[in-house]
């Protein structure tokens, strides 16, 4: 018995495409493809793609939000640093202003003090002068009186002495 004999003898029917099975598989597959494809596969694919789009969009939105947050944060930081700089600047300015005021005040005070000192010196000088004049006058008067008394005693009648004394007094006065 050879191989071919067996193969032809046995009903090897799967290799014979029977009309009925062709018909039924066409019907079943066409329904599965066209009807189920339209009613199930298309919506499923659409839903899956929609969902993946949604997920992608959500991820993008999250990334964008993150980016924005980052921007916001850097903005805040910038503002903060600016504020800090501003603060420093203001403080520095204030310090400068204060310093200058103090210095001005110091200068003014010095000037004032100097002025007062000068005034005082002048007044003192004036007073001294006045006092000196006064003292001179008084001394002159006293000296004159003394001298008068002395001279009255011995030079009452000596006009030339009197005149000399007068001249001396004048010389003193001029000093």
């Amino acid at each position: 018995m050879n191989l071919l004999f067996i193969i032809s003898w046995i009903e090897f029917s799967p290799i014979k495409p029977e009309v009925g099975l062709l018909f039924w598989s066409t019907v079943v597959f066409s329904i599965f493809w066209l009807v189920i494809g339209k009613l199930a596969f298309k919506p499923i694919i659409k839903a899956l793609n929609d969902r993946s789009n949604t997920i992608q969009e959500s991820l993008d939105a999250a990334n964008r939000a993150k980016e924005e947050m980052k921007n916001l944060q850097s903005e805040n930081e910038r503002i903060m640093s600016e504020a800090r700089e501003e603060k420093m600047r203001i403080i520095k300015e204030a310090k400068d202003a204060a310093n200058s005021i103090v210095n001005d005040a110091k200068d003014k005070a010095k000037e004032e003090a100097q002025r007062i000192t000068i005034n005082a010196k002048n007044e003192i000088e004036n007073a001294k002068m006045a006092a000196l004049v006064d003292v001179k006058n008084q001394v002159g008067t006293m000296a004159t009186d003394i001298a008068e008394k002395i001279i009255r005693r011995n030079l009452a009648n000596d006009a030339s002495h009197q005149e000399y004394v007068k001249k001396l007094v004048d010389e003193v006065k001029m000093n």
């Binding site: 079943v28 329904i31 199930a40």
Partner: peptide, 20 residues
């Protein structure tokens, strides 16, 4: 074969319609 095909593809169809 037709019976198996109807059974299995019917089952798969119901499954996919339910999923949809």
């Amino acid at each position: 074969n037709v019976f198996a095909m109807l059974l299995v593809i019917g089952f798969m169809s119901i499954l996919f319609l339910g999923m949809a």
